[in-house]
Design a protein around this nucleic acid. Structure first.
Lengths: 348, 348
DNA sequence: TTGTAGGCGTTATCAA
DNA sequence: TTGATAACGCCTACAA
């Protein structure tokens, strides 16, 4: 009579007790092997390891956390994975985690606050050690707060007003200001700001930079030139005609909007850079490749994500969760779509 | 003297016992409320719920699985989130999960078998109910098998030979055959197959379709025209010169390769569709938007992911994990890059 | 270096 | 309709 497991057809999950019995040691010894303790003899360790793989043993982390072990899982709550920028950010977080021996699990909230709530709750329930959070658009700090208490959280990219948590974000205001200064330098007087909706923190910051640059140049801030639109290609397409009537240049909320705009323009026979100046934000990969190449404020999502993960892991290691603010630099990358440097087409 | 928790500055996590005490019931009742049992009186339920939010109670799923509760978490192990196709697939899985009350957690293995092993192990340890797996390129069924035993697994897109698990995949062979038939119909005699490496299941299937079409048309299968390359834009760029020397058309392993190729060609003054026929595979969003628009075999990653998730949830519900094969249809979408329908440029 | 004895938060079983 | 009690698998002492 062995473990009383093999008897039935259905295999019960092997436990450390089974492993201990199989290896001829006590379960404490197995536990020590599991935690990589140096107390255990080399020969014992190999014997126990062998037994574990023989039995197909799988560590039961639920039982472990119950007893007080701490988790090596980081939750990444990302608002929209269909935007390549956030994918880059997620990859940056992942890369940083590898160095720190954490395993990141991603959840995509699709800009849905309800789903975000579910997802964060699940991550807590499963014992994630910390959270990297890029909040969904319409989410509120109020509903999140009770879920996040006593857990280290780093906000990435987006800031939820009222949430006392660290944040890693780009210098949105500065970048937007530079971009608009550049457009002004090219002689534009009627410059629009396109995309997003009020109450989005990133938009507010970028819009502030836009307003600053206008102000510096003595140009009026015209609310009619600040145009709301969904953050997707068709959202941008919808406002293209309006833009053409009201302005000669636009700073777009981000590259997704800018690219949507360039395409909508192209479909209408309007060429960005020649007939209308377009500047994006984020500098995603496609910005380089679209025709005409998109001038954009580079954010480097990968570095942003990496910094967030590093901050999170540092907080986890030190136990000090005092909120920190990290601003990561932005730079204007001038290409063709703003009309600064007209380049001839590839051939023809 | 209350729970002996509030006394110290540090708040311990509230448990059902704390909730029970706060609500003046037993912990069994709280447990019943948690599981949504209809046995409990309405008034009791509200009182308990109130206590839970008062105390900031968070369900401890580790303890629950320890006792035998089953998990509502699905693990999605994705090989490469920087490829938009796999992002689409992940989104498809997520969407399907929402309907089924499962929460999917994504892990990106970055085509790294070691990382994949870690990630799958973690998911098991944390008690994921099932796995949707798009295996990393160099991973082997052998090393995965012990980790996956007794857990429902659905492979998506890619097939790991030797792994006894369901699979949801596109009709790669059929799609590739159609694409090559189309190129042959346009008069091409020397058609290359570009991208990927041997031992990739998807490539083998697409290559088989390629070979079939050649055979049907009485054209020779020339190994020199089957060109290996990494699945990324620069990989494609590296083999562009070779392609121009050896052939007049190419079926690319996927759109990422095709797009890389088109760009490399453009940089060299070669226009796809005019000077060389290019066909991709997957029909990602960008295929429509690149210039010239890419002819591609459409796979619909979102639907593929959704099917996989549905299958997984069905297996979870029924308890029957018998492997199933689901082939999802592919269709050739003819655009400009294959040269079938030359369109004038937008302006000029 | 290894073994023994609780207890972590939850659910299932049974009683009341 | 609610309450008491015994597991579940692991970790942390402490003893040997």
């Amino acid at each position: 009579m062995s473990a009383g497991v093999d008897e039935r057809g259905t295999e019960a999950r092997a436990t450390i007790v089974d492993v201990a019995r199989h290896a001829g040691v006590s379960k404490s010894t197995v536990s020590l092997v599991l935690s990589g303790s140096s107390l255990v003899a080399e020969s014992t360790r190999t014997r126990v390891s062998q037994s574990m793989s023989d039995l197909g043993y799988i560590y039961h982390r639920g039982a472990a956390t119950l007893r007080g072990a701490k988790s090596r899982v980081l939750g990444m709550v990302i608002n929209d994975l269909s935007n390549p920028f956030f994918v880059e950010m997620a990859i940056g977080i992942e890369e940083a985690c590898q160095g720190g021996a954490f395993i990141p699990f991603i959840a995509n909230t699709v800009e849905n606050p309800v789903r975000q709530l579910q997802v964060i709750r699940s991550m807590r329930e499963y014992g994630a050690a910390g959270l990297a959070l890029s909040p969904a658009i319409a989410s509120s700090a109020l509903e999140l707060k009770p879920l996040l208490s006593d857990m280290p959280v780093v906000q990435v990219m987006r800031r939820l007003p009222g949430l006392r948590a660290s944040i890693v974000a780009p210098e949105n205001r500065f970048g937007a200001r530079k971009a608009v200064q550049h457009l002004i330098g090219l002689g534009h007087k009627r410059i629009a700001f396109v995309g997003g909706f009020p109450a989005m923190s990133v938009r507010e910051e970028r819009l502030a930079g836009y307003a600053e640059a206008l102000d510096e140049a003595g140009l009026p801030y015209d609310p009619a030139l600040v145009i709301e639109a969904p953050i997707n290609p068709s959202g941008a397409a919808g406002v293209a005609p309006q833009l053409l009537r009201s302005s000669t240049a636009a700073l777009c909320f981000n590259d997704v909007v800018a690219i949507g705009l360039i395409r909508a323009f192209a479909a209408a026979g309007v060429e960005a850079g020649r007939d209308f100046a377009v500047v994006g934000f984020d500098d995603i990969d496609e910005a380089r490749h679209i025709f005409p190449a998109l001038t954009s404020v580079a954010v480097n999502g990968r570095a942003l994500g990496a910094r967030a993960a590093q901050l999170l892991m540092r907080q986890l290691a030190s136990g000090d969760f005092a909120p920190e603010n990290i601003l990561s630099p932005t730079t204007l990358v001038v290409r063709v779509s703003c009309g600064a440097s007209r380049q001839p087409g590839v051939s023809s």
